[in-house]
Design a protein around this nucleic acid. Sequence first.
DNA 1: CCTACTACGCTTTTT
DNA 2: GCGTAGTAGG
Length: 744
Amino acid sequence: MATYDTLNAQQYEAVTTTEGALLIIAGAGSGKTRVLTHRTAYLIEEKGINPYNIMAITFTNKAASEMRERIDNMVGFGAESIWVTTFHSTCVRILRRFADHIGFDTSFTIYDADDQKQVMKEVCKRLEIDTKIYKEKMFLNVISSAKDNLTDPTEFALNATGDYARQRQAQVYREYQAVLKKNNAMDFDDLIMKTVELFKSDVEVLDYYQERFKYIMVDEYQDTNTAQFELIRLLAGKYGNLCVVGDDDQSIYKFRGANIRNILNFEQYFPQAKVIKLEQNYRSTQNILDAANSVIAHNVGRKQKVLWTDQAAGEKIHFKQFDTAYDEAEYVAADIEKQVRAGGSYSDSAVLYRTNAQSRMFEERFIAENIPYKLVGGVNFYARKEIKDILAYLKTIDNAKDDLAVKRIINIPKRGIGATTINKVQTYADGNEMSFYDAAKIADEIPTVGRSAAKIAPFVTFIQTMRSKANFLSVPELIQNIIQDTGYVRELEAENTPEADARVENIDELISKAVTYEESTEVPTLSGFLEEVALVADIDEVVEGSEYVVLMTLHSAKGLEFPNVYLAGLEDGLFPSYMTITSDNADEEMEEERRLCYVGITRAMKRLTITSAKMRMVRGETMYSKVSRFVSEIPVDLLSGTVATGKSIPRPSQTEKTSPYVNAAKQILREKPIVKVPVKAFSTNATDQMTLSYREGDRVHHIKFGEGTVTQIIAGGRDYEVTVDFDRFGTKKMFASFAKLKKV
DNA sequence: CCTACTACGCTTTTT
DNA sequence: GCGTAGTAGG
């Protein structure tokens, strides 16, 4: 039984308004997740709605799993049948079932930014486009925003008449889609657009989902783009029970297609819509809120609202200007240490900045001071070369229609298969309407390939073997097999450099993610794992309450809160960015930057420090800047501290390079907290750290194979190799740390 | 076909 | 100032 009397009047109204269209304008820290979870419970408990008919959509996996957890705790029975997912995974789920209705194979793969660029390169070559003049990235941006607006290549071409550049883009768009289709792949934007296409072309499928999702809730509604809006509009088209929660002041993804009109004009799309504002803030002190309110008040195009709190004024906002970015980082590091010494925890603090490049200085300082930190963003874990290589193997094993994946690893490790051979196979594949892999399989029949066919054969054999093994091996075991047989890790270890060691660690990390996947999924499959991996963002990995300082961009910080926040690099030219200041559309873009600033300020619960530097290196050039205009939008009486000058501690001379020690440490520490973290559940090194709960002759249970008897245990270098005779699957050899066998 | 060097692109933000 | 991709030479 959920209690609803802890809600304030507006929250209560939002929770109990269940029918029709509802727009909840939820200011920062006003308890919107609470409202959504209570509303879900209310629907089920008080209105008798079947959990099966409820859907809650968010943008990140993190937000989704948080909500999932809170709903599970509140609702209990039946909670698992509520769809609590992201836009992207919702669409994948639908497309996995019905993609064949729009001419795709339901086993399509999902392309990330890297893959997209690869495809675009190919397209540009084919259309003889000089990529020195027209960048691949430019085309990808154009295509992405076309898809955000549901413009297909045909419509795009129609709108391009009379404009040569746009006609060319239309050509590229068409060709790009053709390649994706041929590879049976979709990019991120396709996932949304194709689902909308499916709904529009197939009334039965649409009706099926409309009947299923009678009550729909959308979180972070201000970030929806036109395609996403269309998706939910279609889904809610029959019953009209659509509840959206958002804050126009926190709309910071316009550059990525988010359409702020979706929230500002909600009442026009749904004339009977009810609007509820949540303005009481439960997160921050009065001073922090006052600062946030006065900054955002400088924006014109917004829904009027003023956050208030019954909390005390609290500390003033600390402001410091430094001579250099180095001094800034040094101050922040020292201040964090001070807070910790005073009884705080590292996890209370977060450093927020405008651009990822700013993280470097803080990382170096934190390493020097031995401050545990977690870096969010930058190069995504799954975008790392070694991870992509392993994943490409898995993709090839899972679905060899993905030419990109096959070509990526056909010569990794070196098999003596060069560009010439690959091109010959590709030409043959193109000419015979088959996939690259299928052509490779019959390489010896391709006349042009000649003697090189002998080099391709072992690769094909390996993949075929792995395919048959994939039927009974778990994902971690498959990965283990791949790195064994290809010698991938062995090669890295032989390099014996900190960089290579870091790569090995990343691979270990991937294995442990696969183990987690196996354990947390009811029916684990290779496709399932690849899919999950394709849809994760870095922010999903942040575990709240962990013992480290978080470093991230302001964009990544949305939705999070920390007792002690540092907003770094508040300089005109950096934040707001130079691009914004000099834009043709400066007024509008400045408002988005200001909203970003508002998001940053409102992350802070108790203590907020704003810093800036007079001088900093950007791309190797020294940049001098004034304090950000946003700082002057905060009333002076809310600020304490001043411009720090002169007395800074000696810093490394300009010529001195970063010490190799720091670089090595960074490699190892990236993505990982430094100290004091609980021992990882999974460890790949030294068997002496492991004790097995079973011995030879014992009966054990395996997540996939069920019960069996242990016939042999061999201690290997890194792990125990356990042989089990399974009742239903026969004898299998497996590594103890992956298999997670339980004694029965 | 592989290795070593050079060039360039990045830096506003990412599901 | 860094990392990757492309190219030229072996």
